[in-house]
């Protein structure tokens, strides 16, 4: 699948923003003071920037409001509705925290629940597609939720340390969640790309398997079309191994080392700034691969997945 920059930025930033929203809803940052204000601002900045970025891949962004209507059937619509609800509820919660020095727990819990549901809906947009067997994996939503939790906790730890609040518990939690998220991703990498075309073959795609092995003789068009550009993206696959290593170093190794250092020295916020930035870069690489590695069954009509011949790979 074509890795669209706008969607990669959206899922990365809004994932971290919604993770931080959930943590603040659960009381990770105390009410009142600069930390609550900074945390709330970061939630709106990350989630808002992500949502705005997602509009850039639409053919008609001015009609985006219509996407809130089909929540009964569409995960994309559910994501839109849930994100609006989450931001609205969290807005009230954050307002009470910042301006009234109040932690309204029921409102906070509701915001945390909605934030979690939004991330789940985002993951299910991809996870529910049978046409992309790589994504159609039960671990897909687990990975999205784990990364949102790890990123959100990292950001919460940074804010706590920045405002000289106790942050050791958040740092420890960030370490645990980072390990959990990358463990889930390692499992996903092990099983999801191996799904290939999910049992579909050029023979089943054409219905001609009863005669013999099917090989593309001539494509219907001579230059790439929308289907090939959007769903038969193969450029990145050659660099998968290198990119996975980069993603793990930036997203896991560097943040883990920096958080542990900060913990050892009793909270050093500049280290955590670098940890957050590195984590974001690592998750961007991970998201890029999430698209680049995904195979769509339409490729079977274009010479991919053939048992014999030159176009075996792909």
């Amino acid at each position: 699948m074509h890795p669209a920059g706008s969607i990669i930025i959206f899922t990365t930033l809004s994932g971290m923003g919604l993770g931080l929203m959930a943590l603040m809803g659960l009381g990770a940052i105390p009410a009142g003071g600069g930390a609550a204000l900074a945390g709330a601002a970061l939630v709106f900045l990350l989630t808002g920037a992500g949502l705005v970025s997602s509009l850039f891949h639409l053919g008609h962004p001015e009609r985006a409001w219509r996407a809130l209507s089909q929540w009964r059937s569409s995960w994309l619509s559910r994501e839109g509705v849930l994100s609006v609800l989450a931001l609205a509820v969290f807005g009230l919660h954050a307002g009470a925290m910042v301006f009234l020095d109040l932690n309204l727990w029921p409102l906070g819990f509701l915001a945390a629940l909605l934030a979690t549901a939004t991330v789940y809906a985002t993951a299910m947009i991809y996870g529910s597609l049978r046409s992309v067997p790589t994504w159609n994996d039960p671990l897909t939503p687990v990975v999205y939720l784990a990364f949102a939790a790890a990123g959100g906790t990292l950001a919460a730890a940074l804010i706590a340390r920045l405002f000289a609040l106790p942050g050791a518990v958040l740092e420890l939690l960030a370490v645990v969640l980072l390990v959990a998220a990358w463990t889930a991703k390692a499992l996903w990498w092990k099983q999801a790309p191996a799904r290939g075309f999910g049992g579909s073959t050029p023979e089943s795609a054409t219905g001609l398997g009863g005669i013999g092995r099917v090989r593309l003789f001539e494509a219907p068009h001579t230059s790439p079309n929308y289907l090939l550009k959007e769903m038969v993206f193969v450029v990145g696959r050659r660099h998968v191994r290198k990119l996975r290593t980069i993603a793990v170093i930036l997203g896991a190794a560097v943040p883990l080392a920096l958080v542990l250092l900060s913990l050892a020295f009793g909270g050093v916020w500049p280290l955590l700034v670098v940890a957050v930035a590195s984590h974001v870069a690592g998750v961007l690489a991970e998201r890029w691969l999430f698209f680049a590695e995904a195979k769509h069954t339409v490729a079977l009509y274009y010479g991919h997945g053939e048992a014999h011949g030159r176009r075996v790979a792909g």
């Binding site: 054409t206 001609l208 013999g212 092995r213 090989r215 593309l216 003789f217 494509a219 219907p220 274009y302």
Partner: peptide, 9 residues
């Protein structure tokens, strides 16, 4: 219209 070659199994 795609064109396929089928090698009999």
């Amino acid at each position: 219209v795609h064109s396929f070659e089928i090698e009999p199994d």
